[in-house]
Design a protein around this nucleic acid. Structure first.
Lengths: 110, 110
DNA sequence: CAGACTTATCGTAATATTGCAATGTAATAT
DNA sequence: ATATTACATTGCAATATTACGATAAGTCTG
């Protein structure tokens, strides 16, 4: 109990869930939006911008990195983060693929 | 601690997170996919299809209903579920809006 | 090297999520 | 009315997530 039964679902469904989980927190949405619009994407900036503790931001960034959405490169003392464009497009396509499966009018049962 | 600090974020960011959360479980992805492609969307069918307990499916459906993605109409003894087309398009637009904010090449800092 | 600075990680507490058996509820059928 | 069928809700246990202080680990400056 309390453990998602991934074995019941397809790889794609599990992947979708993992990606959605990455966006399933407003702080991570905010981080992504900030990285998308800014070219000075330093952890410290995010800490000031978002108002969460540094450790918390770092944790959110780690999650985004683990999924491959965000890359970090060491820039002297600090670390510069950015969205991985290839991965970002990949994820966009996955979501688009789900949304494009729209029910035709005659299949809408409500 | 352990409580998402929604007051730090914009309404849109919080909304995005809530919607992403709806997709952040493979069972819910599977349910949505099933509802999108099927016109016979009965809870019982989903239970057979997914292999989770009836109570578990019901819970996932409740979450999807609470967000407005899924509607249920009583159909005799059973309940017929479907995707709310308007809401679905709304959500598609929200996600599309996020993905469209692509960093231009000169802003990519990695 | 010592200090300053930035980010990562650890430890911990609080809350949320997941899964299911058991039970409740409502409609239909006999 | 009673039984049956289908779904919702409750209660519980296990796991996951969120947040942050404290601390570690790394880089730069003097």
């Amino acid at each position: 109990m309390g453990l998602t039964r991934t074995e019941l679902f397809t790889d794609r469904q599990n992947e979708m869930a993992i990606l959605a989980k990455a966006l399933a927190h407003p702080a991570r949405v905010a981080i992504i939006e900030h990285l998308l619009k800014s070219d000075a994407c330093i952890n410290g900036h995010l800490v000031e911008e978002l108002g969460l503790a540094q450790a918390t931001i770092s944790q959110h960034l780690r999650k985004l990195k683990s999924i491959g959405i965000v890359q970090g490169t060491i820039e002297g003392v600090s670390v510069s983060y950015c969205i991985d464009p290839v991965r970002w497009r990949e994820i966009e396509q996955l979501f688009a693929g789900l949304f494009s499966r729209y029910p035709s009018a005659d299949k809408n049962c409500c």
